[in-house]
Design a protein around this nucleic acid. Structure first.
Lengths: 342, 342
DNA sequence: CTGTTAGCGCTTTCAG
DNA sequence: CTGAAAGCGCTAACAG
């Protein structure tokens, strides 16, 4: 692999200075058409393309954005059934704008608690900014990163912390909507199936109850726990072989609904006749692929990715901008065939 | 955000030269313990950490590996139901070794046909090497990249092209195994459900038939096509409402099997009593989460990620190494409950 | 419009 | 064991 041509080679060949070459590379104008042509000719012939490392070093800018993910690096059973369309859609959204705005994407797999690491990553210019998408950022460490006004944007809403750059869907609001929807249909008891922390959910439900005085009764099936004890299938069997089962289910893991349905069918229960189900989709229309078609909340993760990325880059590129902006994307409930008509 | 300390600051504070500081940073030895302590003290006090951009520039090495993915950047319906555990597991495997060997991961979303782009990426030192995992690399362009001996390693086997650095599972072999397995169970006709190109599959089957004289009859359900015409659900209904349906199904999309099962159940058909199903899992044990438990081929994608990453970095770090090495990982068939006992 | 030149922060000979 | 100094390739004043 022979040595790549440098800007000096080009300058020499074109009979101009490196400054001029730099000007045409960066389209800064102030170059005679004729000169420009000579330079371009030389670049062409030498098959020149600027050394990214040198450019970054000179400008003190890497043009790389980091994305902190939640995917575990070591084998971890808990990942197994997690709906990773969330991740892939987010990724696609972010990537679309990075490409357009000329950044690359570095994937980072490191606990957010390691603030020093992130500090370093940014200080050392390995990356110009950070997108944080993991659920785990309601920590003192993370807040510290934000308070330092590090160039980062995050996804999600942190209770009592409206600081920094963030994008979120209204999780609280749409859960409320779903509960209200089910309640309107006549359900008074719902089974909530999720990987989320039970305590967080309970807190939310209390709030929901307080806010709108719903009498909805909620039971909780912890997917982590389920996976450690015979799996979801067994849990569902347990709950639904008893006659007094919850007639409505809400789960944020669309991946699991068809499994649930199969188990129910096998117990002689039909969806939605005997049990109604609502879930969430991260790709619009995805609920249509199931049988029966699933009534879902659509959470526009792709759009959220687009939004964070733009938010972050806007901040990075115009240092003036205020470090405080929250963008809210609305989720919508799409009625299909998995909830019994009222 | 105040300016980060440089190696000069450290040198000054410690009363030594930058060369010495560099020596302790890089653990090159040849530094008196006492001097070393002084330097470390100074680094500590200044909260110094080397500027990654400068290091890369000076060493002409970015310590970044690129990963070419198949995820589309723009919205693309065809992604919808694709099993993306393949991607996430691969990612996790790669990432584990990168972390250990001190590389970062850049995600790249660009057609492999754009060889110039990849040439550049590597020549310009934006990345030190490339992992290619998309299915689309049996092209002249890709082969050209390999022939240039670019530092890249890829996943998959390219017909009649045993060149470069690659890792693959024996797709041909395990398909053969599955077919043989089903045949042994008494099936003579199988429905193959896949996103793969029909022509490729047909070619493979022909080969399979030729090789072992199986009389297995194969029908093909193209998932792309299905998604454009009413979806998988309707297709399955079409095929299985007729009495003369295939009694065995093989699909590489585990995501879809539970849907298929539900549709079959609804038609009064049981798995495995009336229809047997085998699929593939990319996380070991995943088939256990379904109902019934799915008989799967386990393809060790995580391990494949580990293997390519190591292959690539070995090549990058010891320039001597031959540019020709294929690693084969075995897949295994795990019998569970979705195939009727013979 | 174009050229000169001083960095950017770190690594790496080469002397000592 | 340590220091001086020459780059690495490009950018960005500044001078003309």
């Amino acid at each position: 692999m022979k040595m790549a041509a440098t800007i000096y080679d080009v300058a020499k060949k074109a009979g101009v200075s490196t400054a001029t070459v730099s000007r045409v590379i960066n389209k800064l104008g102030n170059v005679r058409q004729e000169t420009k042509a000579k330079v371009e000719e030389a670049m062409e012939q030498l098959n020149f393309t600027p050394n990214a490392l040198a450019v970054s070093f000179a400008t003190n800018k890497s043009n790389i954005i980091g994305l902190v993910t939640t995917l575990e690096s070591e084998r971890n059973i808990s990942n197994e059934m997690v709906n990773n369309f969330y991740f892939t859609e987010l990724f696609r959204g972010i990537n679309t704008v990075l490409k357009r705005r000329n950044y690359d994407l570095l994937i980072i797999n490191e606990s957010l608690d390691n603030t020093q690491y992130y500090d370093g990553l940014i200080q050392n210019k390995r990356i110009d900014g950070l997108v944080v998408s993991t659920q785990l950022h309601n920590t003192a460490q993370f807040k510290k990163l934000v308070r330092q006004k590090l160039p980062l944007a995050y996804i999600g809403k942190i209770p009592n912390f409206n600081q920094g750059l963030s994008v979120y869907a209204r999780y609280y609001k749409y859960t409320d909507e779903i509960l209200g929807y089910l309640n309107d249909k006549g359900f008074e008891r719902v089974l909530f199936i999720s990987y989320r922390q039970k305590q967080d959910l309970i807190k939310m439900w209390d709030q929901l109850k307080y806010d709108n005085h719903t009498k909805m009764d909620i039971e909780y099936l912890d997917l982590y726990e389920a996976h450690q004890n015979g799996g979801l299938v067994e849990k569902i069997k347990d709950i639904y072989q008893d006659g007094n089962y919850p007639r409505a289910i809400f789960t944020d893991e669309l991946n699991n609904v068809q499994i649930i349905i199969s188990v129910l069918n096998n117990l002689g229960l039909q969806v939605p006749k005997d049990v109604s189900i609502v879930s969430v989709e991260h790709i619009h229309g995805m609920g249509n692929n199931y049988y029966p078609k699933i009534t879902n909340v659509y959470v526009p993760v792709y759009d959220m990715g687009v939004a964070v990325a733009n938010l972050l880059i806007d901040f990075i590129e115009q240092n003036q901008q205020e470090y405080n902006k929250q963008i809210i994307l609305e989720s919508i409930l799409i009625e299909r065939e998995s909830v019994k008509k009222g």
